Deep mutational scan, measured.
Amino acid sequence: MDPFVVLVLCLSCLLLLSIWRQSSGRGKLPPGPTPLPVIGNILQIDIKDVSKSLTNLSKIYGPVFTLYFGLERMVVLHGYEVVKEALIDLGEEFSGRGHFPLAERANRGFGIVFSNGKRWKEIRRFSLMTLRNFGMGKRSIEDRVQEEARCLVEELRKTKASPCDPTFILGCAPCNVICSIIFQKRFDYKDQQFLNLMEKLNENIRIVSTPWIQICNNFPTIIDYFPGTHNKLLKNLAFMESDILEKVKEHQESMDINNPRDFIDCFLIKMEKEKQNQQSEFTIENLVITAADLLGAGTETTSTTLRYALLLLLKHPEVTAKVQEEIERVIGRNRSPCMQDRGHMPYTDAVVHEVQRYIDLIPTSLPHAVTCDVKFRNYLIPKGTTILTSLTSVLHDNKEFPNPEMFDPRHFLDEGGNFKKSNYFMPFSAGKRICVGEGLARMELFLFLTFILQNFNLKSLIDPKDLDTTPVVNGFASVPPFYQLCFIPV
């Protein structure tokens, strides 16, 4: 058959498939802009700032609406009420993970971030239990974070109060905490193996944040037939998995079943207990991918939040002064901060919360999916439909947070200066898919920041009023603009 005829037939089939998918069930789905064949609503979305586009569309179609990214149908949730109703009140029905062709290629359905069903539930339950087990290797997770915080302070001392970009050092600290939990080992910041790991993690975040990856996920045929950065992403992930597998083999040879040292040991012990169960989800494949998931999810998000926190503290020296006064009063100079201190430091706690609220790190979270046909607000959402959640619409709700575009710790303080919780605080998402490392991340943010401010004054290279804190939105995360500062020993 003539190649031209084959091409026309293929394009015609794709067009018909697109029209059929977009028209099927439209009477039951939430409203939304009319999609174009094949490309859907992509032309109506700013790929570099999806969150802003969703906010604009919500003003037209309401808090629940339908979009098509290519052939992929998505239902968008915008605003606290619908997000709570879906992710919390109907948590089980909305607990699936959205379709990610690239991740599915890399992870093969294993791990904790992109798995679904029984596998996801069992691996998540085990990971939560293990991360909360403060007795691994007779050292609590808090001990590990405190140790890394001391190392971080010593690295900052080496800058000798000269101007520096904190990106690298602030990236090393949370990565080392995860390494300590998974591998029972922290690395020197100049260790070549550690630097290679950091390089792969950072490069992957840069790649994932590009519009090209959005295109690959919406048109998965590209993955096999086109060159691009997605190939580098898959190569980096394969490198990390190979490295983790080597460490798993080392653990198998040296493990003491009665004295687990780290996450890998705990997983291997669980595998041993379930070795007679042919349906067990505790396999080497799941261990390797879960460890890679924890490394990827637990490094860049925390380091970016820390980097943004220091920029905001530079911009608002009056806030920094209040935090340091609270540190001096509650902790002093002669001991290290600990998590028990947080309950006695409402202002510092409010500042950490406000940093996370203000920066809105992951504006749309990772997409969910419905696990069955769901009736939601008089609409029928078919099983498997991807759910896109606007966390921006919750964290920047102007009824809950007056002047949401302003950095103001009073958003989390009552009139008496006591810490005030808010149900709208969802930087880790909400419901059954809430970030498994939430507790660890909150511990790291509090301890790293208090250790830094206990030991250093922060000095800006320019007038604080002239510092730009506008986030650089890159399609996946909101990151701070480049800046330098000086760490002046107190």
Rank of each mutant, 00 (worst) to 15 (best):
D2H: 13
V6W: 15
L7T: 11
V8I: 14
V8Y: 08
L11R: 01
L11C: 14
S12E: 04
S12A: 12
S12L: 13
C13R: 00
L15H: 06
S18M: 15
W20R: 11
Q22I: 12
S23D: 11
R26M: 09
G27S: 12
L29M: 15
P30Q: 01
P33H: 01
P33M: 00
T34N: 11
T34M: 07
L36D: 02
I39R: 03
G40S: 02
N41C: 03
L43K: 06
Q44E: 11
K48N: 09
S51T: 14
K52R: 12
K52V: 06
S58H: 12
K59D: 09
Y61L: 00
G62L: 00
V64R: 01
T66C: 09
F69D: 03
G70V: 03
L71Y: 13
L71V: 14
E72G: 06
M74H: 09
M74L: 10
G79H: 02
Y80R: 06
Y80D: 03
E81L: 06
V83Y: 04
E85G: 07
A86H: 00
L90K: 13
E92W: 09
S95I: 05
S95Y: 02
R97V: 03
G98A: 15
F100N: 15
F110L: 12
F110P: 03
S115I: 03
R119K: 12
K121D: 14
K121A: 13
R124E: 01
F126P: 00
T130G: 08
L131D: 02
L131Y: 04
R132K: 12
G135T: 15
G137C: 12
K138C: 15
Q146K: 11
A149G: 11
A149C: 09
R150K: 15
L152E: 01
V153C: 10
E155S: 09
E155A: 12
L156K: 01
R157C: 10
K158P: 00
T159Y: 09
A161I: 06
P163W: 09
P163C: 10
P163N: 08
D165R: 02
P166L: 03
F168Y: 14
I169N: 05
P174C: 08
C175I: 07
C179R: 05
C179A: 10
S180I: 05
I181G: 01
I182N: 02
K185M: 09
D191G: 05
Q192E: 13
N196G: 11
M198V: 13
L201S: 07
R206G: 09
R206N: 14
V208R: 14
V208C: 14
T210E: 11
T210S: 15
P211S: 11
Q214S: 15
I215S: 04
C216N: 04
C216R: 06
I222Q: 04
I223S: 11
I223P: 05
D224G: 10
D224H: 08
D224A: 08
Y225K: 11
G228Q: 05
G228N: 05
G228H: 07
G228P: 04
K232R: 14
K232F: 06
K235N: 09
K235C: 08
I244G: 01
I244K: 02
I244L: 12
I244Y: 00
L245C: 05
K247W: 13
K249S: 06
H251N: 05
H251M: 01
Q252F: 10
E253R: 13
E253L: 15
M255G: 05
M255S: 05
I257T: 14
N258H: 14
R261I: 05
F263C: 01
L268G: 00
L268M: 06
I269Y: 07
K270A: 12
K273P: 05
Q276Y: 14
Q278A: 11
Q278Y: 11
E281L: 10
T283M: 07
T283R: 09
E285S: 13
E285D: 13
N286D: 04
L287H: 00
T290K: 00
D293W: 04
A297Q: 14
A297S: 12
T299K: 04
T299R: 03
T302F: 05
S303N: 09
S303T: 10
T305R: 02
L306G: 00
Y308G: 07
A309K: 00
L311T: 04
L313G: 01
H316C: 05
V319P: 03
T320Q: 13
T320C: 13
A321G: 13
V323W: 01
V323E: 01
V323P: 00
E325L: 11
E326D: 05
I327N: 00
E328V: 10
E328W: 15
E328K: 14
I331V: 13
P337E: 01
C338S: 14
Q340P: 06
R342Q: 14
G343A: 14
H344M: 15
H344L: 15
P346A: 07
D349I: 07
A350Y: 02
V351F: 12
H353F: 05
V355P: 00
V355K: 00
Y358P: 00
I359W: 03
D360H: 05
L361N: 03
L361T: 06
P363C: 02
P363H: 04
T364F: 14
T364Q: 11
T364E: 06
S365W: 04
P367G: 05
H368M: 03
H368Q: 04
H368C: 03
A369L: 11
V370A: 13
T371Y: 05
C372V: 12
D373I: 02
K375T: 11
F376Y: 08
R377V: 03
R377I: 04
N378D: 15
N378C: 05
Y379G: 01
L380S: 10
I381D: 00
G384P: 00
T386D: 03
T386I: 09
I387T: 03
I387N: 00
L388Y: 08
S390Q: 06
S393W: 00
L395D: 03
D397M: 01
N398I: 12
K399M: 12
K399E: 15
E400V: 09
F401K: 00
P402I: 11
P402V: 13
N403S: 14
E405Q: 13
M406G: 11
M406H: 06
M406R: 13
F407V: 00
D408G: 01
D414Q: 07
D414L: 05
G417A: 07
G417V: 06
F419P: 05
K420S: 08
Y424M: 08
M426S: 02
P427A: 14
F428S: 01
F428Y: 08
K432Y: 10
C435W: 00
C435I: 02
C435P: 03
V436P: 08
V436F: 09
E444C: 00
L445V: 10
L447R: 03
I452G: 03
Q454C: 00
N455G: 07
L458V: 12
L458T: 03
L467D: 05
V472P: 10
V473A: 14
G475T: 10
G475A: 14
P480T: 09
Q484K: 13
L485C: 15
L485N: 03
F487N: 00
I488E: 15
